[in-house]
């Protein structure tokens, strides 16, 4: 099986192994570059528009919370970044699955490029959570199940970032990183359900606080728009990084071919 890393010019759409034809069609980096090049400007425009609209609405126009006052406005940053921290890890695991099982060359690069972005969103989630916790709870940090499991998520991201770049042979890095990413998936349901399975300081609690999750519509809309904006931003950033990575790999291949032919 020809590795794309050493292949100077990718063959157009001819799958190297039988059975993988349909999947490897989408692995064609040339097609990816053309498709993503057409989509990325629109994606970026929508991401910027929705993020600015959601955050601007949340910061300036949304009503002040009855209980927490203006501090509740941190929600419009904290909650979308928390969702993207988990969703980003899910996409990392998905890319890792394709990388490990189907040896999908684009998935290898996607996993490498998703890692730092996901870590950035997770760090943003933890930082804004801390900034919210200090004035409201009275503590920057507590070791409850929710906060701890999100910290573990950050370490999984950081571990993946280091591991995937730790080998001279990039393929070994891709495989090891994929295994780590897939093992880490076990943390995602723990993050999600930590506030239901155990008593946590993080809301909602298991006892006496149990009400239907409720946010007034005037606060829910900016939150949803900010969340869509963050999702599109994440997608746009990863797409741009992936385009760069594909082109960088092609540059390496061309330079290598040139060096060999001389």
């Amino acid at each position: 099986m020809t590795r794309m890393d050493t292949h100077p010019i990718e063959a157009p759409a001819t799958a190297p192994s039988a059975g993988g034809t349909s999947l490897h069609r989408f692995a064609n980096p040339g097609r990816f570059l053309r498709l993503s090049g057409a989509v990325l400007p629109w994606l970026t425009a929508a991401a910027v528009a929705l993020t600015v609209a959601g955050l601007g609405w949340g910061l300036l126009l949304a009503p002040t919370d009855w209980q927490q006052g203006d501090a509740a406005r941190i929600m419009y940053v904290h909650v979308p970044s928390a969702w993207l921290a988990s969703a980003g890890y899910f996409s990392l695991a998905l890319a890792s699955l394709f990388s490990l099982v189907w040896r999908h060359p684009l998935a290898d690069l996607a996993a490498v490029e998703i890692g730092p972005v996901g870590a950035g969103f997770t760090a943003l989630c933890l930082a804004t959570g801390s900034l919210w916790g200090k004035p409201m709870w009275g503590a920057w940090w507590v070791w409850d199940a929710r906060l701890t499991s999100v910290l573990v998520l950050l370490f999984l991201y950081l571990g993946h970032i280091v591991l995937v770049r730790a080998f001279d042979d990039p393929v070994r890095g891709y495989r090891s990183g994929a295994v780590l990413a897939l093992i880490g998936v076990v943390n995602l349901p723990i993050i999600k359900f930590s506030v239901e399975w155990w008593n946590t300081l993080h809301q909602p609690a298991s006892i006496k606080f149990t009400e239907a999750p409720s946010i007034a519509p005037g606060m829910l809309w900016p939150l949803l728009i900010a969340a869509i904006g963050f999702s599109l931003s994440f997608a746009a950033i990863v797409t741009a990084r992936l385009r760069a990575a594909v082109m960088e790999r092609r540059i390496r291949g061309l330079l290598l071919a040139r060096a060999v032919s001389r």
């Binding site: 970026t44 993020t51 955050l55 910061l59 006052g69 203006d70 501090a71 406005r73 941190i74 940053v77 904290h78 970044s81 730092p116 972005v117 950035g120 969103f121 760090a123 943003l124 930082a127 804004t128 900034l131 919210w132 200090k134 004035p135 963050f230 931003s233 746009a236 950033i237 741009a240 990084r241 385009r243 760069a244 082109m247 960088e248 540059i251």
Partner: peptide, 30 residues
């Protein structure tokens, strides 16, 4: 608690614009 709110939004700006600009510059260079 406006300082806490302001720092949170500033951090969001730094992360989003930082990653976005970094990716864009890298893609341009490539």
């Amino acid at each position: 608690h406006l300082p806490f709110v302001a720092i949170s939004y500033a951090l969001a700006f730094v992360v989003l614009v930082g990653f976005g600009l970094g990716a864009w510059l890298r893609a341009m260079a490539a």
